[in-house]
Design a protein around this nucleic acid. Structure first.
Length: 152
DNA sequence: GCCAACGTTGGC
DNA sequence: GCCAACGTTGGC
């Protein structure tokens, strides 16, 4: 099983919004970065666990856990001219972008902020805390996963 | 609101 | 294939 971290701006989609969806499940649309797409498409498997990270907000940080409940399939929002993430170059016959479905597993009892995460040498290799990193989806090792949960 | 870092685009 | 220009991300 693999572990991941995925970012979302809470103003557009938050951990609470996920919790309130039917079956606490939602498709993770709008990924428009090839590196992130490739990880989602090639490596994310049913049952993988993911940290939900709130970005671009008052207290950026890890706020919860979710799991993959459906593997890679076409991101239909790319075909919709009305959608903010519309991509005219994504052909429905040969979709450029894909998504997965995630289900809420847990909301952490507190936010583990980016500021706090930066203080732990145990996770200094985590892409999130590395300089200039902007990837919206990144792998987390089992050791990093366990450590982060141990400080909740 | 600023701006550093980074990814993408497109001319050549 | 190079790289300057541009757009986006996201912390602060």
């Amino acid at each position: 099983m693999n572990y991941w971290l995925m970012k979302s701006e809470p103003d557009s989609f938050s951990i609470d919004a996920l919790y309130n969806r039917p079956n606490q499940t939602e498709h993770w649309d709008g990924v428009r970065n090839y590196q992130a797409r490739n990880m989602m498409r090639d490596e994310m498997k049913l049952g993988d666990l993911i940290f939900f990270y709130h970005s671009n907000c008052d207290v950026p940080g890890i706020v919860g856990i979710m799991e993959i409940v459906k593997e890679s399939y076409p991101d239909f929002t790319a075909f919709d001219p009305e959608d903010a993430n519309f991509d005219p170059k994504s052909d429905p016959e040969d979709p450029r972008w894909i998504m997965v479905d995630v289900r809420h597993v847990k909301t952490l009892i507190r936010v583990i902020s980016l500021k706090e995460l930066r203080t732990y040498s145990e996770i200094e290799e985590l892409a999130l805390v590395r300089r200039g990193n902007r990837l919206s989806i990144m792998p987390v090792t089992a050791a990093q996963w366990d450590f982060i949960l141990s400080v909740e």
